[in-house]
Each structure stands twice: as C-alpha cells, then as structure tokens.
C-alpha cells in the first residue's frame, strides 16, 4: 500500500535531510538535557562556592520546570528520569529523593502547561515558587523519615529561596536559548 504523506504545513524550501543537518538538529534539541547534565556535573565539583550544595537542586528544578512548560518535546519524562538518577548519584543524599522531586516538578509543569505557557511572567514565577515550596517540604519530610530523626530545616528554606531567586536569571537564559539556539528558522 502506498503511504500517504501530507502536504507540508509551511510550503516552501525544505532543508535537505543530510548528515550535517541531522547532527545540527540533534545537538540543538539536546541542549536542555546537556545543560542540566553538565550543570549537575560542574556543581558537584569542589568549586568551594558559597551555597553550592543548595544551588544544584535550584538550577535543576528551574530548568526542568521551564522546559517542561514551554517545550516538553525537548524535556521528555524519560530524560528527566535519567537526569534524576545522574543527580542522585552525584549528590550523596538519600537515594531517589532528588529523582522524585524532579519528576513531580516535571509532572506539574506538564499538566498545567496549556495555562502556564500563556500567563504573565510574574504569575509563572509565583506558580514556580509554590511548586518549589511544596517539593522542598516533601524532600524535608522524606529526609526526616529516611534518617529517622528531624533534620535541620533551614538549609531547605535556603534551597527554596535560592531557586525562587534564580528563576528570573534562568528564565532570561531560557528565552535566549529557546529563541536563538533550539528554535531556529526551520522550526522543530
């Protein structure tokens, strides 16, 4: 049976699907994944930055949230899972907690993306703040339960505040990346 190919939505000159084009396209669309991967790796190195331990979850959560809202094709659930395992291996916390947090942030962003992608930036920021508070509270409860005693609460508050504060910076970076690196003229 002859397969039917629909006519292109945007008729015009289509780029040839050469090797170079495919490599270029692949690298561009794996930018979000690679960013989180290397951010995790770099922030686990002994840089002696102040607040380095809390910065890693903050950057991971903001990045996953933004890409899951605006371009879930480039941040699929399976990629989040792989990144979660990677972050868990490098972070020496209780195993799996980081992974669960990342999946929950991804899930919330994914389920609300038709609303979230259209709202004002400040409302998006606020929504992220609420999500982060919830997720960090869950992390604290899980850490207490797994360690069988109450662990100190302040580092978790710091982690939330840091994530909330770094949102605008990462949002700017995200918009730039989305416009000029990932979403080039041929349109993915």
């Amino acid at each position: 049976m002859k397969t039917f190919t629909p006519p292109p939505i945007r008729p015009g000159i289509q780029p040839r699907s050469s090797m170079g084009y495919r490599i270029d396209h692949g690298v561009r669309s794996s930018v979000p994944f690679l960013f989180v991967f290397f951010a995790t790796l770099v922030l686990s190195a002994p840089l002696n930055l102040p607040g380095q331990v809390e910065l890693m979850p903050a950057i991971i959560m903001v990045t996953i949230f933004l890409w899951s809202v605006f371009a879930p094709v480039l941040m699929p659930s399976l990629a989040v899972f792989v990144l979660g395992i990677w972050a868990d291996i490098l972070s020496f916390g209780p195993a799996g907690v980081m992974l669960l947090m990342m999946l929950i942030v991804h899930g919330v962003a994914l389920s609300g993306r038709y609303t979230l992608a259209r709202v004002n930036f400040f409302i998006l920021w606020l929504v992220f703040g609420v999500v982060m508070v919830g997720v960090t509270a869950l992390q604290w409860v899980l850490c207490c339960a797994l360690a069988l005693h109450i662990v100190e609460f302040l580092p978790f508050v710091f982690e939330t505040v840091l994530a909330f504060g770094s949102f605008p910076v990462l949002y700017t970076g995200f918009v730039w990346t989305y416009r000029f690196v990932v979403n080039n003229a041929d349109g993915a």
């Binding site: 195993a95 799996g96 999946l103 991804h106 994914l110």
Partner: peptide, 30 residues
C-alpha cells in the same frame, strides 16, 4: 509513562533504604 516513572522513583528510594551498599558502591564508582 510519567506515573510509571514516579513509581520507579519511589522504588529507588526504597531500594536505597533497603540495600545501602549497592547505592554506595555505584556512587563510589562514579
């Protein structure tokens, strides 16, 4: 896919609690 992955994550938490040596070995290897 997502609910299944969340279930797997809970499984990983339990595994980390039940068999600490495995996770530690993986981390030390990395």
């Amino acid at each position: 896919v997502l609910p299944a992955l969340i279930l797997v994550a809970c499984g990983v938490i339990l595994l980390g609690k039940a068999d600490r040596g495995l996770i530690e070995k993986l981390r030390m290897h990395t």
